[in-house]
Design a protein around this nucleic acid. Structure first.
Lengths: 144, 144
DNA sequence: ATATTTTTGTTGATATATCAATATTATATA
DNA sequence: TATATAATATTGATATATCAACAAAAATAT
């Protein structure tokens, strides 16, 4: 009467991103037990784009700005980021990697890259492009 | 130095499932403002598989059993499910659609099916199969 | 120059994800 | 039968997602 979840393509999509996140988190925690994959990503973005506003970060990351606020707060609490008021715009904050953050940055980037490489093993460029195109069609169908 | 998120395939995967969920939730809320897509799915599963344990539900849905517990509790609180203690196993519960649940069931199933159809418009069988295969490779890479 | 609108960010409420700890009942084993 | 183990479900803590309401500062309009 109704397909079981595992026969449905949306289930596979959801499962794949969940497994990737789970895998990536496990790898990251080996070296950095106090940050999540989402926090790590936002941290690398802030480090290489120090002038981005939180609003822009939230657009680029496709995350709610409320989530961005909270992730930044955790990065700050765990000592990866410093937060000062922005020199010329007092609504904003100047976010910079702390000493601890700087020391961790390269390793974090390396882990993320390696995670991606491992997850994509055996998936050639054609497959990746095709995957991307199909998913973009799906996105268009859901947003138009 | 580091790809922006939108150039990364994992971002597209995540975005696609998010857009689908957002779209599906909007459609569902038009008719049923008091259930989420996840709850609706679990509700249809319970209705057609009344003997499934919550553990089995959580396996089939690829969700944590803690989440399943909470979703069932909300379905009960909002009057879609009745919960009684199981006749032969007092650890378990017998979950059955309430009157309200029964009245809603067919419409819910129809909405879910329609959402899927709309989201997959213009994505042919070959694309779907290929998508499925590629994602399954990714899953295997992350879980082995 | 003051009033209005926009930008930027925070907070609160609720749902879900994840992991660990717990409670209860059922089953297996000694 | 008594005890240990397994199965089933709940609860708590923390992170994130989502939506809405809010506050402060900046930009714009009148």
């Amino acid at each position: 009467m109704f397909k079981l979840p595992n026969e449905v393509i949306f289930y596979t999509i959801e499962r794949s991103i969940k497994e990737y996140r789970h895998f990536a988190q496990k790898q990251l925690w080996k070296a950095f037990p106090d940050i999540t994959v989402d926090q790590a990503l936002i941290f690398t973005l802030i480090s290489s784009n120090p002038e981005m506003t939180q609003e822009e970060l939230s657009d680029v990351l496709f995350k709610e700005k409320a989530s961005v606020t909270r992730m930044i707060e955790l990065l700050r609490k765990n000592g990866y980021l410093n937060r000062e008021i922005h020199e010329t715009d007092r609504r904003r904050f100047k976010l910079t990697p702390s000493k601890k953050g700087k020391a961790a940055l390269d390793k974090i980037i390396e882990i993320i890259k390696q995670n991606r490489t491992i997850a994509l093993e055996g998936i050639n460029q054609y497959d990746q492009t095709h995957l991307n195109e199909t998913l973009n069609k799906l996105i268009k169908n859901c947003t138009k």
